[in-house]
């Protein structure tokens, strides 16, 4: 019985910590004024904020007597998919020139997002002309 009480309190504590980190993430999203710095806020919410909420869900399911393993799967899928979406938002920012221009890579010609085929460059040039 005491184990279940400890689990209930631990679940409440991790809920508090998780929502605290999500709160900080939202403040960051509102406060920063540049698309690239704004991108840093959701990566934080996606890792420790959601992680603590899922830990609370695990502890709660232990406290009410069941056991659930779905949280581990949610965590694993989140860790695999979150970097991909962040990478795509960063690529859109670079593509639309809505952030400071990145430095040239030392060995290769250019970054793959800025590497447009020859035909596209001519098309935009003729449209402007």
């Amino acid at each position: 019985m005491t184990g279940q009480i400890i689990a209930t309190y631990a679940a409440a504590l991790s809920l508090l910590i998780g929502s605290g980190f999500i709160m900080v993430g939202v403040i960051g999203l509102l406060k920063f004024n540049d698309p690239m710095t704004r991108l840093h806020a959701p990566t934080k919410v996606g890792t420790i904020g959601i992680g603590m909420l899922l830990l609370a869900s695990l502890l709660h399911s232990y406290a009410i007597g069941g056991s659930s393993m779905h949280e581990l799967l949610i965590m694993a899928f989140l860790f695999v998919t979150a970097p991909v979406s962040a990478n795509f938002i960063a690529k859109v920012n670079i593509h639309q020139r809505s952030c400071s221009t990145p430095p040239e890579p030392p060995e290769d010609d250019t970054w793959s997002t800025l590497n447009s085929p020859e035909g596209d460059v001519e098309d935009t040039a003729s449209q402007k002309g």
Binding site: M36, F79, N87
Partner: peptide, 19 residues
């Protein structure tokens, strides 16, 4: 990307450096 404070944004066209 998962480590807060840094986001990997792009790969160079031949794959030799990471932005």
């Amino acid at each position: 990307t998962l480590t807060p404070g840094t986001v990997s944004a792009d790969l160079s066209d031949e794959g030799h450096s990471l932005l």
